[in-house]
Computed example of a mutant assay.
Amino acid sequence: MTATINDAAAQATWPLVTAACLTAGLDPTGAEPVRIADNAIWAIPGQIIVRVTRPGRRAAAHRELLTAQWLADHHVPAVRPAGPAAVDLPDNRAATFWERLPDHTHGRHEDVARLLHQLHRLTAPAHLPPLNDPAAKGRARLEAVRDAGVIDARNMAWLLAYADDLADSWHALDDGLAHTPLHGDAWAGNVALTRDGQAFLLDLDSAAVGPPEWDLTSTAVKVTTTATIPVAEYERFVAAYGGYDVTDYDGFSAMRGIRELRMTTYAIQTAIDHPHTAAEARHRVACLRGFNGPRPWTWTAVPHPPGSPGPIV
């Protein structure tokens, strides 16, 4: 690791990267953090990416490797493992190793749609779990940070109750499209677009089986909630998926609410290591509570401090 990296969250994962590399027979010398978010992503010499999970995500890391191989078998463009096995780490964490993609940017929304259309047409493999309660991730984040001081006790109590209400709404959803394999966190930041125009799915650790509307909602909130993409761009997304607009689905408001909760709890979680993001976290809570008027709201991407590697979105 170079001396210029002073981000506390990156520093905290460096011993885990070192241990994982040595266990796998790799040399971590010269490793650089790429993005420190839900997973800590590092690049090591030799065109290999190391992903270290958060505590409690070991099983998801092992499933992610299976999912990547399954996608390769079905010719879906996605990141490929650089090794067949994960390295288990303390606190129920794991590290996985991946082939580094060529230079790339975030994908376009129509790239997301095309890849999802391809994914959603496949038969789900046995290793993918059902998506039973996506609101649970938001609640788990809240439980983990409830005493951190980013959000006051009154707002925290409201958020926890709101998470329970959204879970109830999920279980009461009307039938929509037939259940399919899901990416689980399908947005433009989880698609890589290389210079030659090739698009690849990234971050496969949330893959599951469930309503495809869940994957489509991630982009729909960019226009209905945060106003971060124009309507014309969203229309291109709908067209690239085949013409289905998830905002017409009766259960869209419930799915949108869960996505908004997860985006908000992510900002709260991030503010622990990056205190300058606390204001954005509180702004999002105020929006959810109805204090900032109707949607769309103005939400700002949650970044690393200046000089640190990569954005947290």
Rank of each mutant, 00 (worst) to 15 (best):
T2E: 11
A3E: 13
T4C: 08
A8N: 12
W14F: 03
P15S: 07
P15C: 10
T23C: 06
A24G: 04
A24R: 12
G25Q: 06
L26A: 14
P28E: 13
V34N: 09
W42E: 06
I48L: 12
G56M: 14
A61I: 02
E64S: 15
Q69N: 15
Q69D: 15
A72E: 14
A72M: 11
V76W: 00
V79I: 14
P84V: 02
A85N: 13
V87W: 05
N92T: 10
R100F: 08
H104M: 05
G107L: 07
G107W: 00
D111N: 15
A113V: 02
L115F: 03
H117Q: 11
A124I: 03
L128T: 02
D133I: 11
A135W: 10
A140N: 03
R141A: 01
R141W: 01
G149W: 03
A157M: 00
W158I: 09
L160V: 08
D165S: 03
A172L: 00
D174F: 08
T180Q: 11
P181R: 04
L182S: 07
G184R: 03
G189E: 06
N190T: 03
R195Y: 05
S206I: 03
E213C: 10
L216C: 04
S218E: 06
V221R: 09
K222A: 01
T224K: 10
T224R: 14
P230S: 09
V231L: 12
V238E: 08
A239L: 09
G243S: 12
G243W: 09
Y249D: 15
G251M: 07
S253K: 01
A254V: 09
Q269F: 04
A271K: 04
A271V: 04
T277N: 12
A278W: 06
A278T: 11
H283T: 13
A286C: 01
A286V: 02
C287I: 02
P296C: 13
W299T: 00
A301F: 06
A301E: 14
P303W: 13
P305E: 11
S308W: 11
S308I: 08
P311K: 07
I312T: 13
